[in-house]
C-alpha cells in the first residue's frame, strides 16, 4: 500500500449529483446514496489511506463532478 504524504478530505455537492451511483461502485465505505432521491451522501469524509485510490477514482468517474477530494499536506512527523 502506497504511503501518502497528504491527507484526503472528501466533500460532495448534492445539488449537482445525478444519482448515477458510480461512486458507490468505487467504494461503499465512503459513499452512499440517499434513499429518497439517489443523491450521494458521505459515509465518512476523512477515509483511511487504503481507500485513497478508490476515492480518487470515484472523483474522476463521477459523471456530474459532484465529488471533491482535497489533498491536505501531512505534517512531517520526522521533522
Amino acid at each position: 500500500m502506497a504511503n501518502h504524504d497528504y491527507k484526503l478530505i472528501v466533500s460532495v455537492n448534492q445539488d449537482v449529483c445525478v444519482g448515477a451511483g458510480l461512486c458507490v461502485l468505487s467504494t461503499d465505505e465512503v459513499f452512499d446514496q440517499r434513499d429518497e432521491d439517489g443523491v450521494v451522501k458521505l459515509v465518512q469524509n476523512e477515509p483511511p489511506e487504503e481507500l485513497y485510490e478508490k476515492v480518487l477514482g470515484a472523483v474522476r468517474k463521477c459523471p456530474s463532478k459532484a465529488i471533491k477530494a482535497e489533498q491536505i499536506p501531512k505534517e512531517n512527523k520526522e521533522a
Binding site: V18, G19, E36, D37, G38, V39
Partner: peptide, 9 residues
C-alpha cells in the same frame, strides 16, 4: 425532480 426520478427507477 430527483426524488420522482429515483422513485421511477
Amino acid at each position: 425532480s430527483p426524488a420522482d426520478h429515483m422513485m421511477g427507477r
